[in-house]
Amino acid sequence: MNRELGRHEEMASMIRTEKLCKSFKVGSNDIAVINDVDITIDSGDFVSIMGPSGSGKSTLLYLLGGIDEPTSGRVFFQEKDINQMKDKEKSRLRRTSMGFVFQFYNLVQNLTVEENILLPVTMDRKKPADYHEQLNEILEIVGLSERRNYTPRELSGGQQQRVAIARALILNPALILADEPIGNLDSKTGTEIMELFYRINKEKGITIVQVTHSEEAAEYGNRLIRMKDGMVQEPVFISK
């Protein structure tokens, strides 16, 4: 805990939680999924959250992204309490400062690769034409320059996940939240995706928080948060 606080004092935090709790009602009982979680993730970190099924790791990720709302406690993104924000502000935050990557890619099936990637741009009332260079650069990074006019159905799982990553990158966010990004991919493709995340983290300095079951995937990050029964175990730093 001391080490965690120590790091926080040294650098500005990207995202942090205070006594974060989330419970669901099952019948007449309240089941706690996240229990009193205090974590701080600094700018430039590549954090992996691991834990057994039902430990609350994905719930924590969605609370960090402001998609879900806590039962109690607070989430600060760049020192702003995201749960005090209105839906519109939160959406803008998700659009401009965060990027989401899901296990099942969650692409809009009737849009092309290019349109899917530019979706946050258009929703932010910006002109797609102004993002032409960024789009080309990102397509280059994810290796899909040749398939920019394909629809998701015409792509493999790995390629679809690259599109999801590109979509997360287009507005140059400070944070990428990834929920089991290689959970639906074969090991070779999984490795490629993790290497892509690693490059993004290193070259662009984007903070990444991923939920994963894979120890190998976790090793691409510099920190590991283990969870059990909704609580954070002692954080581990991975030397790189």
Binding site: I67, D87, K88, S91, G99, N106, V108, P120, D124
Partner: peptide, 16 residues
């Protein structure tokens, strides 16, 4: 519903 949730999670507010 899922389509709306995807759009919501990546870039859109409910108003949008």
């Amino acid at each position: 519903k899922k389509e709306y949730a995807i759009l919501y999670s990546v870039c859109m507010s409910k108003g949008q």
